[in-house]
Amino acid sequence: MTLLLAIVTGSLYAAGIFLILRRNMVKVIFGLILLGHAANLLIFTVGRLTKGIPAFVPEGSDMLTGRFADPLPQALILTAIVIGFGVQAFTIVLFKRTWLTLGTEDLDMMKTTDEPPKE
């Protein structure tokens, strides 16, 4: 299972990086979203995958013993998903507004802020 998730994470990273290097704005958004997912899955995987051992304290005991699924990575991912969702929603609106204002979705055309002002 770990191997499978490792491969999935790696593929997501590869796809995300490929997409953010494209000139088309929409592809760049998808690239950023994929990179976010890849980071979330990475946290999930390196937080140890344990199947069917929830982190419940057994009756009559006051602490966890033995192996158990660590809930913290899942809490981290949940937070990251919520933040990512908000930021991505903003980015999509920003990109749409940019397209409406500048009339282009080619990132190579957007270089006026990098050029020195014209004579």
Partner: peptide, 19 residues
Amino acid sequence: TINLLSSSVFLAAAGILYG
């Protein structure tokens, strides 16, 4: 764009560190 990219790097680094 660059800040979202750097955030996802941050997230991954924090995850590996926790692991």
